[in-house]
Simulated scan of single mutants.
Amino acid sequence: MVPRNGDSSVLTVEDVEVPDPGPGEVQVEVAAVGVNFIDVYQREGVYPIETPFVSCSEGAGTVTAVGEGVSGLSVGDRVAWGQGLGAAGTVVNRSVDDLVPVPDGLDLDVAAAAMLQGMTAHYLVTDTYAVGPGTVALVHAAAGGVGQLLVQMVTAKGGRVIATAGSPDKLEIARRLGATATIDYSQVDDLAAAVREANGGAGVDVAYDGVGKATFDASLASLRARGMMVLFGAASGQVPPFDIQRLNRGGSLFLTRPTLGHYIATREELLARARSVLGDLAEGRLHLEVGGRYPLDEAARAYDDLEGRRTTGKLLLIP
């Protein structure tokens, strides 16, 4: 529960009575809840939400009750979701419009871990900038949840990845997943120059930047003429306003600030993305690392670890 805006210390665990599912809803016994930076933005008030509210938008579990008018889902079905508040509970009611089926053979905790970050990586490489053979992509925080998936998806489409991270261990994760060049950004004075050197002196086609303030300038400076800067997060802080003429001077650059909701705007698109990501995980074509599992009453510690960039892979809360 987020009773008021603030840092992780405001988070509380409370006992509440969950009503029967309403029309168009099912009740789900939650197996795992995804921990994401969007939860931080909402808790801090960067994305304003009226308090109090139950945090988290991503989870997976088993249907335990079905509301009026629901078809296509039954008690015992395994489902996952990646949007809408209120996931951080032991039992939740969810609209069937938000739910997707979890394939046989895929653990529920992996499904919970994959929904938001997996579909984010999917739309970034298929729609925001359509990666293809020969594409050179810069991926920041490549050992993080989205970063690891981006490295794999770009590589699977025939692209090359220049990966950045903040330690040798994290860079080794990126190399193992397919990155062709890696850069420890804590050890270089000019990150953009290091990126260009890793690409034979040329700029990259696209920069996938979920770090934000700390890497934004270097990402722009790493692009080729008419390259695309994709700012999809702000782990290091929000990027301040800047002179749009910088895009002109950098070589007619493109800049976009996408968010997942606009790429799953229809039920059909949600199902297509989720089936692609979850199917690849179930079939072993995609690997997802769960970097930490925390009890629900230790949510503050999970977010402190996430915000302190002390983790790799995906973090989960386990009710």
Score class of each variant (00 low, 15 high):
146 V>H: 01
100 V>Y: 07
187 Q>T: 15
177 L>N: 12
115 M>S: 04
188 V>H: 12
138 L>R: 01
153 M>W: 15
172 E>I: 00
100 V>C: 07
154 V>W: 03
194 A>N: 04
201 G>L: 06
135 T>E: 08
134 G>C: 12
191 L>N: 07
199 N>R: 07
138 L>E: 02
121 A>K: 12
172 E>L: 08
117 Q>W: 04
159 G>T: 09
153 M>G: 02
175 R>I: 06
184 D>L: 04
138 L>W: 15
130 A>L: 14
175 R>M: 08
192 A>E: 11
134 G>K: 14
181 A>Q: 14
172 E>Y: 02
132 G>Q: 15
197 E>Y: 03
161 V>K: 02
138 L>G: 03
156 A>T: 03
170 K>S: 11
164 T>K: 05
99 L>V: 10
174 A>N: 02
91 V>K: 14
99 L>T: 01
119 M>L: 15
106 L>E: 13
101 P>C: 09
114 A>I: 03
172 E>C: 06
187 Q>F: 09
96 V>F: 00
126 T>F: 05
193 A>D: 13
156 A>G: 08
128 T>R: 15
121 A>Q: 10
181 A>C: 06
181 A>E: 14
106 L>S: 13
150 L>V: 02
198 A>N: 00
101 P>F: 07
192 A>H: 08
139 V>I: 13
144 G>C: 10
165 A>Y: 03
150 L>Y: 01
136 V>L: 02
120 T>S: 15
191 L>T: 09
113 A>M: 10
139 V>A: 00
